[in-house]
Amino acid sequence: MAAILNFAIFPMDKGSNLGDYVSKVIQHIRESGLDYQLTPMGTIIEAPTVGEALKVVEEAYEILEPISDRIYCVMNMDVKKDKSGLIKGKIASIEERIGEVNK
Rank of each mutant, 00 (worst) to 15 (best):
A3P: 08
M77W: 00
P66H: 14
R30E: 15
E62H: 14
S84K: 12
I63W: 10
E52F: 02
M1T: 14
A60N: 12
S68Q: 08
C73A: 12
I29D: 06
I91L: 13
N102D: 14
E96G: 13
Y61G: 04
I67L: 11
L34A: 07
A60S: 15
N17Q: 08
D13P: 07
I87S: 03
E31C: 01
P66C: 07
Y61Q: 03
G51K: 06
V57A: 07
I44V: 12
L38F: 03
Y61C: 03
I67M: 15
L64A: 07
Q37V: 00
G89K: 13
E100S: 11
I63E: 07
Q27H: 08
S84N: 11
K24V: 05
K80Y: 13
I71C: 05
G19R: 05
S32T: 15
P48I: 03
L34F: 15
E100A: 08
S32I: 09
G33M: 10
I45C: 05
H28T: 03
L18A: 08
N76Y: 01
P48C: 03
N17F: 04
G42C: 10
Y72R: 01
S93P: 00
G19W: 06
I94A: 13
I67E: 14
I26P: 09
I4M: 14
E95R: 10
I67H: 06
P66S: 11
Q37L: 08
E65D: 13
H28I: 02
P48M: 02
V79G: 00
F10M: 13
L34N: 08
I63R: 07
Y36K: 03
D69E: 15
R30H: 11
G15S: 12
K55N: 00
C73Q: 10
M41R: 09
